[in-house]
C-alpha cells in the first residue's frame, strides 16, 4: 500500500475550520432571505424584480471581469451575489412598478467593477461595495432615489414620505413603532422590517460570522444620541425628548448596522477598534439625520467610517505575549 505518491504532504495544521469564505458568504445571504421575502409582501413583485436585476448584474460583472483578466473565477464564493443583494435592499421601493432597471444595474456594476475589483478584488476594497454602489446611484439619480416611495401593502399608491422624512419634516402620518418593527412602512426594499433583519442578525451572530459588538454599539449610540438630541427638531425644541426607538427601527439602521457595518473587509479587525468604529457610525448617522438636508444617514456614516478603518486598526494592536508594555509596530 501507499508506496506510490498517493500521500499528501503539507505543512501543519492538517485540519481547517468548516467556516470557509463561501460558507460565510452564503450564510449571510441566507440571513438576508427573511427580509427579502417580507419585501415581497410589502411592495409586491417589483421588489423581487429589483433584487433579481441587481444580483444578476453583480454576479455577471464579476464573472466577466474574472474572465477578461484571466483570474480565478471568484463568483461561486458568493460575495458578488451578496453585494448585489445588499444593493437591492438599499434601493427604494418605488410606487407603481419598480425602479427603472438601469439603476440597480448601474449600482451593481459600479460596486463590483470600480469599488471592488479595481482595487484588487475581495479583501482589498476599502469601502463597502454595496454602499458605494448605492451612493453612486443616489447622486446620479437623486430624484428617482428619493421620491415616489411606495406605500406599504398597497404598492401602487405613492406614500408621502418615508418614516424618517415624516418625522423630520412633520409630513404625513407617522407609522407606529409596531409597524416599523414589523416593516409595514415605506422605505428601501430590504430595510423596512426590523424584525426580519434582527432574525438574520441573530443567526449570524450565533454562527460567529458577524461580531455582536458593531451592531450593538452602533444601535446603542444612535438610540442614545437620538434620545438626547432628537427633540430639537420638534415644534418645542428640548433635549432628552427624542424618540430613540423610532430612530433605530427606521431608515435602514438595522440593515446597515447588522449587515453592512459588519462587513469584514471594511471594518476594524479587533474588538476595541470595532467599538470605536460602531460608535463613530452612530454619531455620524444621528448628525446627518438631525442636521443634514438628507434624511438617511446610515450609508454615508458607514462609508465615512470605512475610510477611517486603517487608522483605527493602527490604533489598537495587541501586545505580543511576553513583551510587557512593548507595543507591536505596524
Amino acid at each position: 500500500m501507499a508506496q506510490d505518491n498517493s500521500l499528501l504532504i503539507s505543512s501543519s495544521p492538517h485540519i481547517r475550520t468548516k467556516d470557509k469564505l463561501p460558507v460565510v458568504m452564503w450564510s449571510v445571504v441566507i440571513a438576508l432571505i427573511p427580509a427579502g421575502v417580507w419585501s415581497y409582501f410589502v411592495f409586491g413583485i417589483s421588489a423581487i424584480i429589483t433584487i433579481g436585476v441587481s444580483v444578476g448584474a453583480a454576479v455577471l460583472t464579476e464573472l466577466i471581469i474574472n474572465l477578461l483578466i484571466g483570474k480565478r473565477i471568484t463568483v461561486i464564493n458568493g460575495s458578488a451575489f451578496l453585494t448585489g443583494l445588499l444593493i437591492a435592499y438599499n434601493l427604494p421601493a418605488s410606487a407603481g412598478g419598480h425602479l427603472p432597471i438601469y439603476i440597480p444595474i448601474a449600482a451593481s456594476v459600479f460596486a463590483i467593477a470600480v469599488i471592488k475589483l479595481a482595487f484588487g478584488g475581495l479583501g482589498q476594497n476599502w469601502m463597502n461595495p454595496a454602499l458605494g454602489g448605492r451612493i453612486f446611484v443616489f447622486f446620479a439619480w437623486t430624484r428617482l432615489m428619493t421620491s415616489g416611495w411606495a406605500a406599504p401593502m398597497s404598492p401602487d399608491v405613492v406614500s408621502s414620505a418615508t418614516p424618517l422624512a415624516a418625522l423630520k419634516f412633520n409630513a404625513g402620518t407617522l407609522p407606529t413603532h409596531l409597524d416599523l418593527f414589523l416593516g409595514k412602512t415605506s422605505g428601501c426594499i430590504g430595510e423596512v422590517s426590523a424584525a426580519a433583519l434582527i432574525l438574520g442578525g441573530v443567526f449570524l451572530i450565533i454562527r460567529k460570522i458577524v461580531n455582536w459588538e458593531i451592531p450593538v454599539f452602533y444601535i446603542l449610540t444612535t438610540a442614545i444620541l437620538a434620545w438626547i438630541f432628537g427633540g430639537l427638531n420638534a415644534s418645542t425644541p428640548a433635549l432628552f425628548t427624542g424618540d430613540p426607538l423610532y430612530h433605530i427601527l427606521s431608515g435602514g439602521l438595522m440593515l446597515g448596522a447588522i449587515f453592512m457595518a459588519t462587513d469584514w473587509v471594511t471594518s476594524p479587525m479587533l474588538f476595541k477598534g470595532r467599538v470605536l468604529f460602531a460608535v463613530g457610525c452612530g454619531i455620524i448617522t444621528v448628525l446627518i439625520r438631525l442636521t443634514g438636508r438628507n434624511v438617511e444617514g446610515v450609508s454615508f456614516a458607514i462609508v465615512l467610517m470605512n475610510i477611517a478603518v486603517p487608522l483605527i486598526d493602527r490604533l489598537f494592536r495587541l501586545g505580543i505575549f511576553g513583551t510587557p508594555g512593548k507595543e507591536k509596530k505596524a
Binding site: 469564505l21 471568484t74 484588487g120 475581495l122 479583501g123 482589498q124 469584514w264 473587509v265 471594511t266 479587525m269
Partner: peptide
C-alpha cells in the same frame, strides 16, 4: 487559499 478578507 483566497486573499485575506480582514476578518481579524
Amino acid at each position: 487559499h483566497a486573499p485575506c478578507v480582514r476578518c481579524g
